[in-house]
């Protein structure tokens, strides 16, 4: 009897291990596919398509994510598409998220972009802490490239609703969790250069 139990346990555990390994491979494959789609969507959005006929064909065949705009942070080698505010997938657990209350880059007002930091797969802003004052950020929107420059970096205590103080009417805010103080947000404040 015991031998049978042990045999079954060994089989189950072996199966579990195999399944998890498979899961990891599937997830990785899926992530890679998603990454490729995202990359092509970004290229499509920022109109960096060159004249290579094959690449054009490739782009036109592949599925495209309709990003509202694309955020590029050269300092930390980040280039991510951002969906429209009302898109169900505009969710911080899935993407770099644009928060409610944001305006478009061609409007006067503030743009709030948040993403996770940490160890998770969607921790797109994990390296945000490496950015400093005067570093640049780009927003691509409707065939235009908007350049922003960091002018201040603050940490604000986490709360349901936070209050950000600026001396400028229009700002780009990049928000993520502070890695030094888990109970605080790290907020980069940028103003538009051009």
């Amino acid at each position: 009897m015991l031998k049978n139990v042990i045999r079954v346990a060994i089989v189950v555990l072996a199966a579990l291990i195999l399944l998890q390994l498979l899961n990891i491979f599937i997830i990785r494959y899926r992530d890679e596919q998603q990454r490729l789609i995202e990359e092509k969507s970004i290229i499509y959005e920022v109109k960096e398509i060159d004249d290579t006929p094959n690449l054009k064909k490739e782009v036109s065949k592949s599925p495209i994510i309709n990003y509202e705009l694309v955020l590029e942070l050269p300092k930390i080698n980040l280039k991510k598409g951002i969906l429209s505010i009302d898109d169900p997938d505009n969710n911080i657990d899935k993407n770099v998220t644009i928060l409610k209350g944001s305006v478009h880059p061609d409007e006067e007002g503030n743009i709030y972009i948040a993403a996770h930091s940490g160890t998770g797969k969607q921790s797109y802003f994990n390296d945000l802490v490496k950015m400093q004052e005067s570093d640049l950020a780009y927003l691509y929107y409707q065939n235009n490239k908007y350049v922003y420059e960091v002018y201040d970096i603050v940490e604000i205590a986490k709360n349901d609703g936070i209050s950000i103080l600026t001396d400028r009417r229009s700002n780009l805010f990049l928000i993520t969790c502070s890695q030094k103080h888990k109970d605080k947000y790290l907020i980069l404040m940028l103003s538009r250069k051009s």
Partner: peptide, 29 residues
């Protein structure tokens, strides 16, 4: 001298990796 005080709601931005969970399971198994 003008100051703008912008209040807004911000979701939690800390994420634990799901890959870690799978890894933990594998190791436990």
């Amino acid at each position: 001298i003008e100051y703008y005080l912008n209040d807004l709601k911000v979701p939690d931005t800390y994420q634990h990796s799901t890959n870690d969970i799978a890894f933990d399971l594998i190791m436990t198994s």
